[in-house]
Computed example of a mutant assay.
Amino acid sequence: MMSLLPNDELDPWALPAVPLTSWQQLPVAAGMTFVIRKQAMLHIGIARNLRNQWVDHPLRDAFNSLPLDTQIHFLERSDRSLQALLQMASGWIDAYRPQFNAVKLTIEAASSLKALESIQNELQELEARPYLLDCYVQRTAAGGTAAGKGRDPGRYACLRSRHQTFVNGKKSQYIPLYAIAKYEEQCERGRQIKRLRKSRDNVRNRLEQARRTLDRTGIQLLL
């Protein structure tokens, strides 16, 4: 059969296969399985250990009712993480819409994992540079202590924190005017990091909720 090739130009029908009733012959390796009967793609699964997954497969009862000529085609990809395998599997699931897969949820989970990777990369880049969380620069000239110490109040501004405390035990510290740009950049970087951390946590929560359902459809995620 000529099938769509959404991933890696591989044809699931051309992969090695074992009868559905001989799942014990599946390899002890990470990868994907394709439950196929003739021209029908019935299910696509991913697991860190293909054989072990079938010891107590969540869809065992449903598969037991399938005709005896149903086969399990398999693809070993021990070089890939489960997240990478999900990206591959989601393309086939989108193309074939298998009967026993949670199609929409699987595609959404793959998209969320891709977004999470992008967020984490951006966070890593931002967090590698100096940043200040929950801080802002007050550009008005410093007075009070700064002036009292003989400083020119027109040469200082104030760096303030909404939550954290500076080394001096206060929520503010004086900064020279020439350093305003540097501190404002660090404050802005802190705001970006805070937004990204919130987005990361939201995506992780969605994936955790999806994981519980996907586990029941033979799609393993390692979060």
Results as ranks from 00 to 15, higher is better:
1 M>S: 12
1 M>K: 10
1 M>W: 05
3 S>H: 08
3 S>E: 08
3 S>P: 01
4 L>I: 09
5 L>I: 12
6 P>W: 11
6 P>H: 09
7 N>E: 07
9 E>H: 10
10 L>C: 05
11 D>R: 11
12 P>Q: 01
12 P>G: 01
12 P>D: 04
13 W>V: 06
14 A>V: 07
17 A>Q: 06
17 A>T: 02
17 A>H: 10
18 V>N: 07
18 V>A: 09
19 P>W: 01
19 P>V: 03
19 P>D: 11
21 T>V: 13
27 P>E: 09
27 P>F: 02
29 A>C: 05
31 G>K: 02
31 G>V: 01
32 M>S: 08
33 T>M: 00
34 F>S: 00
36 I>H: 04
37 R>M: 03
38 K>W: 06
38 K>C: 02
39 Q>F: 03
40 A>Q: 15
42 L>Y: 01
43 H>P: 00
48 R>Q: 10
49 N>W: 01
51 R>P: 03
52 N>V: 03
54 W>C: 04
55 V>D: 04
56 D>R: 10
57 H>Q: 09
61 D>N: 12
64 N>M: 14
64 N>A: 10
65 S>F: 08
67 P>A: 08
67 P>I: 08
71 Q>C: 13
72 I>H: 12
72 I>N: 01
73 H>P: 03
75 L>Q: 03
75 L>G: 02
76 E>V: 14
77 R>T: 04
78 S>P: 03
83 Q>L: 04
84 A>P: 02
91 G>T: 03
92 W>M: 01
93 I>D: 01
96 Y>H: 10
97 R>D: 10
102 A>H: 11
103 V>F: 02
104 K>D: 15
107 I>S: 00
109 A>D: 04
109 A>N: 06
110 A>Q: 00
111 S>R: 14
115 A>M: 09
116 L>A: 03
118 S>V: 15
118 S>P: 02
119 I>W: 03
119 I>T: 15
121 N>Y: 07
121 N>P: 00
123 L>G: 06
126 L>F: 08
126 L>W: 13
130 P>W: 11
133 L>V: 10
136 Y>R: 10
137 V>W: 11
137 V>R: 08
138 Q>W: 11
138 Q>D: 11
139 R>S: 08
144 G>F: 06
145 T>M: 06
145 T>Y: 12
146 A>L: 06
146 A>C: 11
147 A>I: 07
147 A>S: 10
151 R>P: 00
151 R>G: 14
152 D>Q: 07
154 G>L: 12
154 G>T: 15
155 R>L: 14
156 Y>H: 14
156 Y>T: 00
159 L>V: 00
164 Q>W: 13
165 T>A: 11
166 F>G: 02
168 N>K: 03
169 G>S: 04
170 K>E: 15
170 K>M: 04
171 K>R: 13
171 K>S: 02
174 Y>L: 01
175 I>E: 02
179 A>S: 12
180 I>H: 09
181 A>H: 15
183 Y>F: 15
187 C>V: 05
187 C>E: 10
188 E>L: 05
191 R>D: 12
191 R>N: 13
193 I>G: 09
197 R>V: 04
198 K>W: 06
199 S>H: 12
199 S>E: 15
199 S>A: 13
200 R>T: 04
202 N>S: 12
203 V>F: 14
204 R>Q: 11
204 R>D: 07
206 R>G: 07
208 E>H: 09
210 A>H: 08
213 T>I: 14
215 D>F: 13
217 T>I: 08
220 Q>M: 14
223 L>P: 07
